[in-house]
């Protein structure tokens, strides 16, 4: 069975916008985010779930603004988050007059949404938006303990990123003329591999990196087997949020299969915070992590000419608190898209 999807016609990421909280602003990528929230990360809302929704609204509004588009120019919004019933997306995007598809891929949602938008834009549609978000406070509430509960975190635990990013993709080159494009390279999605849900037997909800790494390895191995490419063909291979544990497990797992990615691998969860000074244990995670790092680091690299060819692998731990309490292990998933630089 062929796993590699070649996008039938080029789908450009016309614009992207990222919204983050204070911890992310204080991290190494701080200056590259488009919008930073208030000092309490409430985004002016009285509950954390509303704050997360507001972040999605801000991200998509800003991305539309960068693309010089209105919501009615889009044919679909694909969005997801970590909250039950994707509440962050469905409430956050309710003000946009655009057909809406809600997604759940845990922390891989940004990649899932971009993958699907590139398929849609290259066939039945022209313009789509992909949005995802996570908020540390709403995730803590839903998956861990009350915010003010006095507990200690395990060294392998990851820190849910407060962040949201929106990406506008289009298969119409003329859209760049409208967006006052100044001739710099633009990101194009050319290939994709859909992840498999892989249960590697990890039951520790404080070690999500280990739960996700086998899925990332599986997706990468399938990609390289079928594409005929080599890791050295890419400027970076960026996983979403494997963190410290997951990243080194991934490099171990692929190395045993004869695929050495360590020279070009980087991980969103590892670069969003400063590991020395920010006390974020194994790194960042959450739907917002890979999304804001992709927008603020990788796509910026493409636009500035530093990156010409990259793989983005959104990694997700499909963790369900009820299933965990019932003793089930955590399946992981990883969706891959290849992004190259193109001059329009």
């Amino acid at each position: 069975m062929e796993n590699l999807i070649r996008i039938p016609k080029p789908v450009y990421i016309l614009s992207s916008a990222s919204v983050v909280g204070q911890h992310e602003k204080n991290g190494p990528l701080g200056e590259y985010f488009d919008i930073v929230g208030d000092k309490d990360d409430t985004f002016g809302c009285d509950t954390w779930e509303k704050s997360e929704s507001e972040m999605q609204r801000l991200a998509l509004s800003r991305a539309l603004n960068y693309a010089c588009m209105k919501d009615t120019d889009l044919e679909a919004i694909l969005a997801g988050d970590l909250l039950n019933q994707c509440a962050g997306s469905s409430y956050g995007l309710v003000s946009f007059e655009t057909p809406f598809l809600g997604l759940f891929g845990a922390c891989s949602t940004a990649a899932e949404a971009l993958l699907l938008s590139s398929l849609l834009c290259s066939s039945h549609m022209t313009r789509c938006a992909a949005v995802s978000s996570s908020h540390n406070a709403s995730a803590e509430r839903q998956f861990r303990y009350p915010l003010e509960y006095g507990g200690q975190r395990a060294p392998t635990a990851q820190w849910t990123v407060t962040g949201s990013a929106a990406f506008i993709s289009t298969s119409c080159k003329d859209d760049f003329a409208q967006a006052a494009h100044n001739g710099e390279p633009v990101p194009v999605i050319t290939e994709a591999v859909i992840g498999k849900s892989i249960d590697a037997g990890i039951t520790d909800a404080n070690n999500m990196g280990a739960a996700m790494a086998p899925a990332a390895a599986d997706t990468l191995l399938r990609y390289f087997r079928e594409s005929g490419m080599q890791p050295s063909d890419f400027d970076i291979i960026m996983t979403g949020d494997l963190g410290f544990e997951g990243s080194s497990i991934l490099c171990d797992l692929t190395a045993t299969e004869g695929l050495d990615i360590s020279a070009v691998h980087c991980d969103g969860g590892l670069i969003i915070y400063n590991r020395e000074t920010q006390d974020k244990h194994a790194g960042g995670s959450g739907c917002g992590c890979s999304a804001v790092v992709l927008a603020a680091q990788a796509l910026r690299g493409i636009r500035t000419g530093q990156i010409a060819n990259m793989l983005f692998i959104g990694t997700g731990a499909l963790m369900n608190p009820t299933a965990i309490q019932q003793g089930a292990s955590i399946p992981g998933i990883a969706h891959l898209i290849r992004i190259t630089a193109d001059i329009v």
Binding site: P155, A200, D204, N207, D218
Partner: peptide, 25 residues
């Protein structure tokens, strides 16, 4: 990659960074 669930879990647990127990105590 052909690791069964039990040996992968053991591998992941064994390499996972441990809590600094002495300092915590």
């Amino acid at each position: 990659m052909q690791m069964d669930k039990n040996s992968y879990k053991k591998y992941a647990d064994a390499r996972a960074k441990k809590s600094p127990c002495a300092k915590n105590c």
